[in-house]
Amino acid sequence: MNGAVNLAVAHRLEAKVLLDWFDLTEIEPKKKFRCYGGSEGIALTVTGMGVENAAAGVRHLHDSQPPGFRAWLNIGIAGHDSAALGEGFLIRRIMHRESGELYWPPVTDLKLPGCELITVAEPETGYPEDAAYDMEGAGFFAAAAGLISTDLVYVFKIISDNRENPVANVDPKQVPDLIRGQESAIRKLVSHLRERSARFAGYYGMPVEFDLLLDKYRFSATRKAGLARLCRRFHALGKQDRLTALARERFRDAASLMTAMDAELARTGKPVI
């Protein structure tokens, strides 16, 4: 089962390898944020650096996509006091240094090394805490968590600089190699997220009849919510066939349709097991 995943990176150099792996091509060129998509339900945006850009890039990709449930994964480079260059970490806690805001990405059983991330406004050279340092994570997480459950928002960082190899020495050309070095972890994460987002969509996606009926009748906002509930109940109770049949029938208006749906559901008197 494969669901949709949106990837967000700060820089084109971080995107390079991912575009290749997931066979992504550019969609809507010349927009503020470059966005890529493929046939596998994976999309990618290059947000630019800093929390504001990260958040805006996430929202831009979201707004350019049709409605749906998508997991989010931020992949990028980060600094760390002692971790080796190229080491990858699934982030467990994010602190936005400027605001003091804390974010808590989900925990998994993927057995990937994890650490805390501190998102800073300027590259960190002192690495004062036992944490990774980046410039986007907090902005990314805050924005993506506004679009989907936080249980579908992950951050993965690869160490590009440490005390012995300061940030000033990072050669941008090495970035694709750093990402490439974490191929197995990234692929594992992406397929894990695809499974999770597929499950999520399966739980909360609307039955097709819902859209059909919305097109056929006029619903107030309250009635629309009521229709969603009714359609879901038909499915939960295994009465898809009856819902399909009702959707084909012609009712005077939305109210009469919903009365008929209610009456049909009320006939479900038999025990569940």
Binding site: L102, V107, G114, I148, T150
Partner: peptide, 25 residues
């Protein structure tokens, strides 16, 4: 993984969590 927090509510009471997905891990 052992993760430190100030108050349990920071994790437990956060908005936008999904109990159903979380039950997996």
């Amino acid at each position: 993984p052992q993760i430190e927090c100030e108050r349990y509510g920071q994790i437990f009471n956060r908005k936008a969590q999904n109990f159903r997905l979380q039950k997996e891990y």
